[in-house]
Design a protein around this nucleic acid. Sequence first.
DNA 1: AAAAATATTTATACAAATCTAATAATAAGA
DNA 2: TCTTATTATTAGATTTGTATAAATATTTTT
Lengths: 217, 217
Amino acid sequence: MVTSTEENYLKAIYNLNLDRNGKGLGTNELADYLQITPATACQMLKKLKKKGLISYKKYGGIALNDSGREVAILVFRKHRLWETFLYVKLEFTWDEIHEVAEQLEHIKSKKLVDQLDKLLDYPEYDPHGDPIPKANGVSRTAFKKTLFNAELGKTYKIVAVKDSSSVFLQYATEIGIGIDVEILTKSRRDFDGFMEIEIGGVIRTISPKVAENVYVD
Amino acid sequence: MVTSTEENYLKAIYNLNLDRNGKGLGTNELADYLQITPATACQMLKKLKKKGLISYKKYGGIALNDSGREVAILVFRKHRLWETFLYVKLEFTWDEIHEVAEQLEHIKSKKLVDQLDKLLDYPEYDPHGDPIPKANGVSRTAFKKTLFNAELGKTYKIVAVKDSSSVFLQYATEIGIGIDVEILTKSRRDFDGFMEIEIGGVIRTISPKVAENVYVD
DNA sequence: AAAAATATTTATACAAATCTAATAATAAGA
DNA sequence: TCTTATTATTAGATTTGTATAAATATTTTT
Ligand SMILES: [Mn+2]
Ligand SMILES: [Mn+2]
Ligand SMILES: [Mn+2]
Ligand SMILES: [Mn+2]
């Protein structure tokens, strides 16, 4: 049996092992991400290793092995399918879905997930633009280009958001940020990275923190 | 916070306090029902009392108070709505739904429940014939007449089942028992209570244990 | 090699849920 | 009423899961 907490650790390890150039994942970084102490992380790592879900060597060598990756991907699949369900079928807004999906992602039933997928007609992306893994574990590659790294003077389409907390999403909605919305980059201030953008005819100044959390294409 | 275990205790107390003639509910009976020791039940009762969910006096005086009943009814509501959802929307069979609903019933989100209710178009009964409480806690009264207590030589309609374990439901399905199915009572053997019935043109002999788990109208 | 960063162990804690065994209280029957 | 059987409660312990602080160990960096 894999507990909910263990599943959350596996998700975290998966996420932290994305977009890092060769640099391995260490105890401190994982602990920081999960808001626990390194000692706690270390104990759980020992447990996960014993269960055959991860492998790791000291100093930056935490990685999922095949069975751990399988669990993590299934949890992402469940999480994103539930989010899509809440959004599409139950009239939830995109800032409400993540929290409930955090609970639903831990429900154990293979049939439930696959039938949910079918009911939703096999969606490719969730309401935040994250790719939904298929039953076989395969999924589209996630979007990478953020608004922060976008070229100036060009029109982009918002395809996803990185942060899915309700605080961020409520603010994002307020300033017109949403999936498939067109956005024009106007300028970026060298001094502090604040950007001027145009969404729906309105010109706004956004912080680099916001810009980094918006994926465009 | 009410834990899943506590919710399950409240459900049990609710159920055990139905159809009993004045006789109060005691620790031993509750413990027996939940497959735990009386000592364990006793501790939990103390805890539930402290939380203001139940009241009780020694020797058969365990009862839900208003807030405990509210919690129990909400859990039943969630359980039965989820069962209906699994059955109607996700192609589950009626012997598969209970187990998954045992997990789903503990998910915390008011909006989720109420929207689910709406999606299913406010169903009155779940796939086992149990009434689904409304958001305000009110529900139809449950069916009471079992096949065991039915008159002989009459045609009835099956309206609900008492046991919702997959073992029972798989057997029930096998012999043609299902909601809204017509059934003719033919005879009852005095010696051991076995009954002869006719379902879908087929005559069968069923045990009193089975007959007691089928509600008719 | 020393200092700094990082990782791990040890010892401790807490919450939640359960058990066994001993004890207490009450109900029921002789 | 007195005794016995039933029922309930307490005390003490255990298990599981998760977490911490402080001490120790190891590796990396300077
Ligand atoms: Mn999410
Ligand atoms: Mn989670
Ligand atoms: Mn059920
Ligand atoms: Mn339950």
